[in-house]
């Protein structure tokens, strides 16, 4: 196992100790190692440098590297916490941790707020929501008249922007999602419960002596 370990660290510069990553997240050591199998495959799909760049991330999401998508870009930026333009293994595990079924709801709400606060102003503003809505319409087959888009925005801000100052703050967002729990569905990935069975090859590449379950 020793030769695997040193080789893996050379090839994956941001690779952190799976035992430490497991201690910081809802994942077991085995699950962290299974996630590494997924990470290896995504991070080698375009440039085999042990890091995930935006093109590789979009390729993994859409199975088509030509697809540009503002939502995928936004998720990538939130995974790339060190703002390096690439996602290392530690970033990958800690960001996916928020999507674990056992992760605290507070963390999911925080992440979703940042997702929609595209400008990072600390508020979800109407122009941001409009931009995302228009992007969604371009991406889907859905065709809506401009007036309908405005009516949807009016209705959304009437419900979410309780103090009616034209923007949604964190407290208003927490209140809004508690009234609309379906909005948090995208923040939980049931797949994360089964990653050791999805990527069973992790047992051959394990760096730890005993696989915790």
């Amino acid at each position: 196992m020793g030769c695997f370990s040193s080789k893996a660290r050379r090839q994956f510069p941001g690779r952190e100790d799976p035992v430490i990553l497991a201690s910081q997240t809802a994942f077991t050591v085995s699950e962290v190692e299974a996630l590494f199998e997924l990470f290896k495959s995504i991070s080698s799909s375009v440039i085999d440098d042990g890091l995930i760049n935006k093109e590789e991330f979009q390729l993994a999401l859409f199975k088509n590297k030509k697809k540009e998508n503002i939502f995928a870009n936004r998720i990538f930026d939130l995974f790339d916490v060190k703002r390096k333009g690439v996602i290392d293994f530690g970033d990958f595990v800690r960001a996916l941790n928020v999507f674990h079924p056992n992760a605290p709801l507070e963390d999911k709400i925080d992440f979703s707020f940042k997702l929609y606060d595209m400008d990072g102003t600390g508020f979800i503003e109407r122009h941001e929501v409009k931009q995302m809505l228009i992007a969604l319409l371009c991406e889907s087959e859905l065709r809506l008249a401009d007036e309908t888009v405005e009516v949807i925005l009016d209705k959304t801000f009437l419900e979410a922007d309780v103090n009616q100052d034209g923007k949604i703050d964190k407290a208003e967002w927490q209140d809004f999602v508690s009234r609309n729990p379906s909005l948090m569905k995208i923040m939980t990935l049931p797949y994360l419960r089964d990653i050791t069975t999805t990527f069973p090859s992790f047992v051959f590449h394990s760096e730890v002596d005993e696989i915790a379950t």
Binding site: A60, L61, I152, T156, Y191
Partner: peptide, 25 residues
């Protein structure tokens, strides 16, 4: 009377927000 989806319900249907596809081989 059909209820209109709010903007976030619509946005959350984007394929770019469906990270589940990362796990599909």
């Amino acid at each position: 009377r059909p209820t209109m989806m709010n903007a976030f319900e619509l946005i959350s249907t984007s394929q770019g927000l469906n990270l589940g596809t990362l796990f599909e081989k």
